[in-house]
Every structure is written in structure tokens, then in C-alpha cells.
């Protein structure tokens, strides 16, 4: 296949970026999208040009390191998959493909497609945990948890922290990310003692970092490579309201 790649190039955070066209011949449909970028980069190195900087590590859709905007959609058009799982068989010979970094003020571009997503770490630091020191645990079967609840918590816990939800949101909100983490813990009995403080602290940190609020566009759900449901946002809103009653506004 022949592919015309329009790639965002930006040498550093302060520099002005631009779209650069690269044409690749002999793209195999069995290649992943990132392997296609690898091929491009090898060609650029041979020519003595700076290769396109992008992040990826596990290449099996679980580490959350990769993430870029392909034809306007974070992780590309294949739903429920990260960009490392997107394969070239989803494209046609002669296609024009536009590749850009996440566009979000909270995710500044470091270089080309590399962005800084450390704000997500700081949101987790605000309360995305159960405060259980090592050594204090009872037997794991001491507290049975209904399978339905455990499965639902697992649905939320699958979030890989890739940043696609905030990048897709017209408001630049990270609500799906926050909702997934809050729901994971707040659904489980282990998460109950900190249920209210967790919801408040994580939402507050999200706002302090500069993310917008949720107004139910659901773009996040469509972009999420793990198909995390927006129903968890409703759950977060309930927990947040509960916290207001419990602790005062």
C-alpha cells in the first residue's frame, strides 16, 4: 500500500509546529500503525533527518504509553483499541492520514507526538487509592464481594490512563478518567471508608489541573480504547453529591 502521512512536527514545547507530508510505499496491511511509523523513522534516520518522536512501550494495548490523534480521533478510528493495536489493514492504498499529538492545554507537547500527561498522575495522587498499609490486610476471602459488583469494578479499573478521554472532550474534561478510578474503588467494600473524600479530592485536583467540566458529549467514551462507559460519570456525580451531604459543601 501507498500511504500519504501528514505528521505534526514540533521540535520542542515552545517552538511552532507544522504538518509535514511523508509518502510511504510498500506498507504491509499486517503492520500495526506504529510499525508503519517505525518504518518511516528508519527511512528518516537513513536520510539524516530527525525521526518523528512518539511514545509507545508494550505494543499490546495495556500500558497506556501510546496515544496520538489520527484523522481527528485519539487512537484512530478503530473503536476499543489503542493506536498500537490499530493495523494498516484498516486503511486503503493511497489514503491520506493526518497524525497529530493530543491537543490539550493540560497535555503540553514535548516534541512531535510526545505530550506531558503527568496531570493524570497528580489526580491519582489526590485520592486514587485505598489507604491500606502492607501488613494490615485480613484474609482475602473474609469479605465476599458479589460477582456483579466485582465485575463492574473491574470494568472501571481497566482504564489505562492514556489521556484519550480528555483529548477527545470538547470541554477538555478528564471526567471519564476520574470517574473510572473513583468508581473502581467506590464500588468495592474496601473503598467505602474513603468514598466521599476520594470523590471530592480527585474532582478538585482535576479542576485545579485545568481540565474542564463534563457536559455529556460522550466523546470520551467513543475514544476510550478500553470502552469505559460514561455510566461511571453518573456514578461519580452521585458519589460527589453524596460527599456534599456527608461532609458539607
Amino acid at each position: 500500500m501507498r500511504i500519504n502521512l501528514h505528521v505534526w512536527r514540533q521540535p520542542n514545547t515552545e517552538a511552532k509546529g507544522h504538518i509535514q507530508l511523508y509518502t510511504l510505499d510498500d506498507v504491509s496491511p499486517d503492520m500495526s500503525f506504529l510499525e508503519m511509523l517505525d518504518v518511516l523513522n528508519e527511512q528518516l534516520i537513513q536520510k539524516g533527518d530527525d525521526p518523528v518522536a512518539f511514545e509507545s512501550d508494550c505494543r499490546e494495548g495495556i500500558c497506556g504509553t501510546c496515544g496520538m490523534v489520527i484523522d481527528g480521533i485519539p487512537h484512530g478510528k478503530q473503536s476499543g483499541a489503542t493506536v498500537c493495536q490499530l493495523h494498516m489493514r484498516k486503511f486503503k492504498d493511497g489514503d491520506d492520514i493526518y497524525v497529530e499529538p493530543y491537543r490539550h492545554t493540560v497535555f503540553p507537547v514535548i516534541k512531535d507526538l510526545f505530550v506531558d500527561r503527568s496531570a493524570y498522575d497528580r489526580i491519582i495522587q489526590a485520592g486514587g487509592y485505598v489507604s491500606a498499609n502492607v501488613g494490615s490486610a485480613p484474609d482475602a476471602n473474609a469479605n465476599p464481594i458479589p460477582k456483579g459488583i466485582a465485575d463492574l469494578a473491574m470494568d472501571a479499573a481497566q482504564c489505562i490512563g492514556c489521556g484519550a478521554c480528555a483529548a477527545a472532550c470538547p470541554n477538555g474534561s478528564a471526567m471519564l478518567f476520574v470517574a473510572a478510578k473513583v468508581s473502581h474503588f467506590n464500588l468495592l467494600p474496601q473503598g467505602q471508608p474513603e468514598k466521599a473524600t476520594r470523590a471530592r479530592a480527585m474532582v478538585k485536583r482535576m479542576e485545579d489541573e485545568g481540565f474542564g467540566g463534563c457536559s455529556n458529549y460522550y466523546e470520551c467514551e467513543a475514544a476510550c480504547p478500553k470502552n469505559i462507559s460514561v455510566r461511571f460519570i453518573a456514578k461519580l456525580n452521585r458519589d460527589y453529591l453524596y460527599a456534599a451531604f456527608k461532609e458539607g459543601v
Binding site: 487509592y129 485505598v130 491500606a132 502492607v134 501488613g135 494490615s136 490486610a137 485480613p138 484474609d139 482475602a140 476471602n141 465476599p144 464481594i145 458479589p146 460477582k147 466485582a150 465485575d151 469494578a153 473491574m154 479499573a157 473502581h184 474503588f185 468495592l188 474496601q190 473503598g191
Partner: peptide, 21 residues
Amino acid sequence: NIIDQSTAMGVPFAREYGGYL
């Protein structure tokens, strides 16, 4: 102890219908 600790920290291990691991 690892299973106990991880469960206490909220790791959502698979469960049977009775709620046990």
C-alpha cells in the same frame, strides 16, 4: 499474604457467584 494485601488495596480479582475469589 500478597493476595490478602492486594485485595485489601482494591485489586478486583475475579470472583465466583458466592462472592469468593
